[in-house]
């Protein structure tokens, strides 16, 4: 398949088909093993690899491949990031709040044929909104615990929030609780026994967003 040029002979492991030749050229190892060795950060150290000049050449080649691959990915990502936003608009236009609407929460009306409701999704939306209006706090998951479909049935609200580091946690949590109570009063007829707020994380001051390194 491959014509062996003198350069190739220097590194016979490039032979695509012959494992024996590959091992012979790599002090008994295969490229796959060397690649796994790199994946492990070259620990625990393997003398038969570390002491072999042939392996060293191959390892350098593998590392170079990784570097070039990483810069190719970076280039591709940059190219994608420079596209206009049409593809994002098209995604958002095609998703439906329906999928995240949740349960229906009744609102009273005197007529027997009336069925007035607010969706759980909309209620979670106003709870988040109440938090987003406050500074230095971000509201995460909001869970309505209890049977919300029964009018006047007391329920509990469980909220995860993230607070700017350095802020007074109890004070901000209390402010959030009040904001949520007042929003719930305006938009729902829910009887809220308690709003439990868990500050799960300390939020670090925003920096320029680096998409790929966001994931911890």
């Amino acid at each position: 398949m491959t014509e062996l040029t003198p350069a190739d002979q220097r590194f016979v492991a490039f032979d695509l088909d012959d494992t024996e030749r590959e091992q012979a050229g790599l002090n008994g190892h295969t490229l796959e093993q060397l690649s796994d060795y790199l994946d492990r950060g070259r620990v625990p150290a393997e003398k038969s690899i570390d002491d072999s000049p042939d392996c060293e050449i191959a390892l350098r080649g593998l590392e170079r491949l990784r570097r070039v691959q990483a810069s190719l990915l970076e280039l591709d990502l940059k190219r994608e990031s420079l596209r206009d936003d049409n593809w994002i608009a098209s995604i958002l236009d095609n998703i439906s709040l329906e999928a995240r609407a949740g349960r229906e929460i009744p609102l009273a009306h005197p007529s027997p044929t009336a069925r007035l409701v607010i969706t759980e999704g909309a209620v979670r939306g106003i709870l988040r909104e109440a938090g987003d209006r406050l500074e230095n706090i971000l509201v995460g998951r909001c869970v309505l615990v209890g049977d919300v479909s029964v009018p006047a049935n007391p329920i509990t609200i469980v909220v995860d929030a993230t607070i700017f580091s350095g802020e007074n946690i109890p004070m901000l949590a209390e402010r959030l609780r009040q904001a949520m109570h007042s929003a719930l009063g305006r938009y729902t007829e829910l009887v809220v026994a308690a709003i439990d707020i868990t500050v799960s994380d300390l939020y670090v001051a925003p920096k320029a967003s680096v998409p790929d390194e966001q994931n911890r």
Binding site: R100, R124, R128, C142, T162, D201, V204, N215
Partner: peptide
């Protein structure tokens, strides 16, 4: 924009576009 993945995933799961 700078929120953690978890925060964003939680909010999106709750219906936050």
């Amino acid at each position: 924009d700078t929120a953690t993945d978890q925060m964003l995933a939680d909010r999106a799961a709750d219906g936050d576009l």
